[in-house]
């Protein structure tokens, strides 16, 4: 499994890790049933604390992208690719909005208009 981090995004590292997994899932590089790297291994290879990786993994679980099972590690869930794709766009949207000084409420308004 190949993950691509984006250090230029300026996001905290755990966000970068989660974003990399989301992008890999959205692009189809990673499919349902695939296993994410063990948190300790990934932490050691990135020279970060294991809890940074675990935080990314628990975010991904809350979003429904992966399943965390004791002893089996983090497994990509069925039907996660469309979810991850949308989430990926939302993250980009939030970043763009921040960069251009568009407020949270304005973004929500725009989304509401689009979705109705």
């Amino acid at each position: 499994m190949l993950l691509k981090l984006d250090p230029t995004s300026g996001l905290p590292l755990y966000n970068q890790i989660a974003a990399a997994v989301r992008r890999a899932v959205a692009d189809g590089d990673v499919v349902a049933g695939d296993r994410l790297p063990a948190a300790r291994d990934l932490a050691k290879s990135l020279d970060v604390n294991m809890h940074t990786v675990l935080r990314a993994y628990s975010d991904l679980r809350e979003e429904g992208v992966i399943e965390l099972r004791r002893g089996r590690g983090a497994i990509v869930r069925e039907g996660s690719s469309s979810l991850a794709h949308v989430h990926h766009l939302v993250v980009e949207l939030a970043a763009e909005a921040g960069r251009h000084g568009v407020s949270f409420d304005e973004v929500v308004e725009m989304l509401k208009k689009e979705c109705s």
């Binding site: 499994m1 190949l2 993950l3 691509k4 981090l5 250090p7 990399a20 296993r35 290879s45």
Partner: peptide, 15 residues
């Protein structure tokens, strides 16, 4: 070889 924009920020894992 693989083609990644920034090999320094890519991670591969396998078993």
């Amino acid at each position: 070889m693989i083609d990644v924009a920034d090999p320094a920020s890519a991670v591969w894992s396998g078993r």
